[in-house]
Structures are given as structure tokens and as C-alpha cells.
């Protein structure tokens, strides 16, 4: 472990100023399930932890039927997936948060942390992408919003500028006749890093898919939103053929690497299988039968 300083500001302004003054070795601390391990293993040089958990906005969970759901960046997973609103209106978010690490990790780990750690295999990011999540960012130049699908720029890298941090993530209210689902593939039954993961969201008008969002993870330097898959689905009834076309688009878009968790060919294949499975589940949740 490195010697480091720890501060716990209570306001956004204070946190921004600490981060801005701390420079490259200052790091936001929420649950710490990634950053503390990285500091311990010297994978990141850190000399200041800015704990954001005392800032009220980072711990909120609020829903408004008109504007949607706002999840504080530091809110632990277990609160999210146990929340009745999340369970009934955003089940894909519950899918993706109830399997991060084990029970102990879920008591600490947060959506903000998962997003800002920006791992290509991050479990919650594809779910946040298909739910049209937006990261609410605070920084030295004030507030801004970044769509989650544009947040990550590479493994462990993202759009945050020095002094910026994610305060919360906002999701629009679910439209009528819509559904979303998330799935991953791991070599064991829990507590594992995805070999591949995927999420899909569908909105129907009658039998026609009016809008689709499909995202995959662990198969590219960042989680990917798949425009081609969405295109293959939108404006048509959902059929085995359109699902297969979306799945093929997922395989084609995947740019995986070979590593100890999986090979290129397995990840490409899993991307298509998982996209197909999440599409079917999203349709089921939207009340559609295939």
C-alpha cells in the first residue's frame, strides 16, 4: 500500500477543488472496490483519496415519472437492485448490479465507480447505455452531462477532465411498451469478470420495433453501443431473422482480444449469443411474445 492522504468533503465545490488541486494523483473514492485494490497493487499512483460519499447528491436515488431516475454515483449496488422502482421499471439495471462481485462488494461498489473505472468488461455500463443513461459531471467549469455510451475512451480511460467527477447518473423514464435486459457470460456462477456481456432495450409501437438500443462489453477497448444492431431491428417487427441480424452485427462490431479470460473467437461468438438472449428478454419484458 502506498502512503496516501484521505479527505471527505461534504460539498461538490469542495470535492472539485480538492481534485483540481490534487492533480493526477488525486482520485475519487466511492466504494473503493477498484481504486483501493489498484493503490495496494501499485497499479495506479495515488496520493490523495477524495471520498465523495458525504456529498448528499452522490447518495441519492430519486424517481419522477416525468423526468426519470437519478442514481447517485456513490450509491452502493445493493440499494439499487433492492429498490422497488428499479426492480419494476429498470430491471436491466437490477440485472447488472446484483451480480457485481459478491454480496460484500455489492455493499460498497457503485455505478459511478464502475463507470469511472472504465473497464472494458464493466458489468453495469452496457445496461446504463441501453437505458440511455447520462453521467452528470461536476468540475472546475461547472456541470455537464455526458451520455454513458460516450463516456469511456479506452481501457481505464474516460472523458473526465482534471478536477471533474461524476455526481450521479440519470435515466429517462421508461416509455410505454418498452423493455430492457442485461446478461453476461462468466466461467463460474458468481463473482467473476465477464468474458462478454450485453444489454438490449426495445420500444414497440404495435408489433414494430420503434426504437432499439444494443450494447456489448468485454469485447472491445470500451463497452460498445451497436448502431448497426439497432438499425437491423428498428422499423420492423421483431422476428428470429431480425434478432439474428442484430446478433450478427454484434459479432461483427466486436473487436476482442485474446487473454486469460477468453479468446477472440469465443468472445465474438458470445457477443452474438448474449445480444440474442437480451433481445428476447427485453421483448418479453415489453410484453411481446415471439
Amino acid at each position: 500500500m502506498q502512503n496516501l492522504k484521505y479527505v471527505k468533503p461534504t460539498t461538490i465545490e469542495e470535492a472539485v477543488s480538492l481534485l483540481a488541486n490534487g492533480g493526477a494523483t488525486a482520485r475519487v473514492l466511492a466504494g473503493g472496490t477498484d481504486v483501493i485494490v489498484q493503490a495496494r497493487e501499485r497499479k495506479r499512483e495515488i496520493d490523495l483519496f477524495v471520498d465523495i460519499k458525504a456529498i448528499e447528491e452522490t447518495r441519492q436515488l430519486s424517481f419522477d415519472a416525468a423526468t426519470g431516475l437519478t442514481v447517485g454515483a456513490a450509491l452502493p449496488c445493493y440499494i439499487i437492485y433492492n429498490d422497488e422502482t428499479v426492480k419494476s421499471l429498470y430491471p436491466a439495471l437490477a440485472d447488472a448490479t446484483c451480480i457485481i462481485g459478491g454480496v460484500a462488494i455489492q455493499g460498497r461498489a457503485s455505478l459511478g465507480g464502475n463507470l469511472c473505472n472504465s473497464s472494458p468488461a464493466a458489468d453495469s455500463i452496457p445496461a446504463m447505455i441501453v437505458l440511455a443513461g447520462e453521467a452528470r459531471v461536476a468540475g472546475p467549469n461547472g456541470r455537464r452531462s455526458v451520455p454513458v455510451d460516450q463516456f469511456c475512451t479506452g481501457p481505464g480511460r474516460n472523458v473526465l477532465a482534471p478536477g471533474e467527477f461524476v455526481v450521479s447518473i440519470h435515466f429517462p423514464a421508461p416509455a410505454a411498451n418498452s423493455g430492457a435486459a442485461w446478461e453476461r457470460f462468466i466461467p463460474r456462477n458468481e463473482m467473476d469478470i465477464a468474458v462478454a456481456n450485453a444489454a438490449s432495450a426495445l420500444r414497440f409501437e404495435g408489433d414494430t420495433v420503434a426504437a432499439a438500443r444494443v450494447a456489448i462489453g468485454a469485447v472491445a477497448p470500451t463497452p460498445l453501443m451497436l448502431a448497426a444492431a439497432a438499425e437491423a431491428l428498428t422499423g420492423r417487427p421483431l422476428t428470429n431473422e431480425t434478432i439474428a441480424a442484430a446478433a450478427t452485427a454484434a459479432s461483427a462490431a466486436a473487436q476482442p482480444i485474446d487473454d486469460m479470460r477468453g479468446s477472440v473467437r469465443q468472445r465474438r461468438h458470445l457477443a452474438s449469443v448474449l445480444v440474442e438472449r437480451t433481445l428476447r428478454e427485453a421483448a418479453r419484458r415489453a410484453g411481446r411474445q415471439l
Binding site: 459478491g102 463460474r188 456462477n189 463473482m191 469478470i193 486469460m260 479470460r261
Partner: peptide, 11 residues
């Protein structure tokens, strides 16, 4: 032990 997999009780 993230990359070297051993079964958990759910396996």
C-alpha cells in the same frame, strides 16, 4: 484469484 478461477459455493 480474479483470473485464476476456483469454484465458489454457487458452483
Amino acid at each position: 484469484l480474479g483470473d485464476y478461477k476456483v469454484p465458489t459455493i454457487r458452483d
